[in-house]
């Protein structure tokens, strides 16, 4: 196994190993490993999928089949910040289309695109479970709720100018958010550094200030 991913960072290698240990069957580790591979290879590239195939003992075609089923494993390079704008029904009722317009307008890219400098990707997504704070967006899968056209523009500009090293939901909410789905409670110190969910055992988690 290590022979295959020996070029991966030490961190990602040990993440891969611990993920495989978490499951009774190797193939179950497929999706978690795709996140790790996407960290290592920037996105779910062919090379990333080949590595995951050899780690789980299935064919590359099987990995592709699974990876392409889900929306969060990206087949093309994604910017450092991935802005996912929900335009499902409840956000739609609360003017999500304006938020999307604002994000597309400010970044200059359409949904599915990436800015020239490769810094920001924009996508239109279906419901992200923030309907109580509609319209909502996620940046690197960290949620901001209660946006407006203006706040969305400000959020994009902030990402572009301030280049936050860690994307923190609470920080974004404080700066740009409004109505929330529920009381979030205390600040969450953890955030995402890459467009991959910030989840400890695997993913792009890092503690912010």
């Amino acid at each position: 196994m290590t022979a295959v991913i020996s070029h991966w960072s030490q961190e990602n290698q040990s993440a891969a190993k611990s993920i495989l240990d978490r499951y009774p069957e190797k193939r179950s580790a497929l999706m978690p490993l795709l996140y790790v591979a996407s960290l290592e290879h920037e996105y779910a590239s062919d090379d990333a999928m080949r590595e995951v195939a050899s780690l789980t003992g299935i064919s590359a075609a099987q990995v592709l089949s699974v990876a392409s089923f889900y929306t969060m494993f990206k087949a093309v390079p994604v910017g450092r910040y991935l802005i996912s704008v929900c335009t499902s029904v409840v956000c739609y009722l609360n003017n999500a289309d304006e938020v999307l317009e604002a994000v597309e307008g400010t970044t200059g890219v359409d949904s599915g695109g990436i800015t020239h400098d490769g810094a920001i990707s924009v996508e239109r997504v279906e419901c992200i479970g923030a309907c109580g704070g509609a319209p909502a967006v996620q940046v690197n899968y960290e949620t901001v709720e209660g946006l407006t056209r203006e706040k969305a523009e400000a959020l994009v500009n902030w990402l572009r100018d301030a280049k936050p090293p860690v994307v923190l939901a609470d920080e974004m909410q404080q700066l740009f958010g409004g109505q929330r789905s529920f009381d979030w409670g205390p600040m969450d110190p953890d955030g995402a550094v890459r467009p991959i969910p910030a989840f400890g055992p695997y993913g792009s988690v890092e503690e912010g200030r």
């Binding site: 179950s28 999706m31 996140y35 789980t56 969060m72 993913g203």
Partner: peptide
């Protein structure tokens, strides 16, 4: 176990497939 972005995985048997590393 973190999903990968697919509403259908809420359906319990789709969820089990997903947890097994399948579509």
């Amino acid at each position: 176990h973190l999903g990968g972005g697919a509403y259908i995985c809420g359906e319990e048997t789709a969820l089990l497939n997903s947890l097994e590393g399948r579509r």
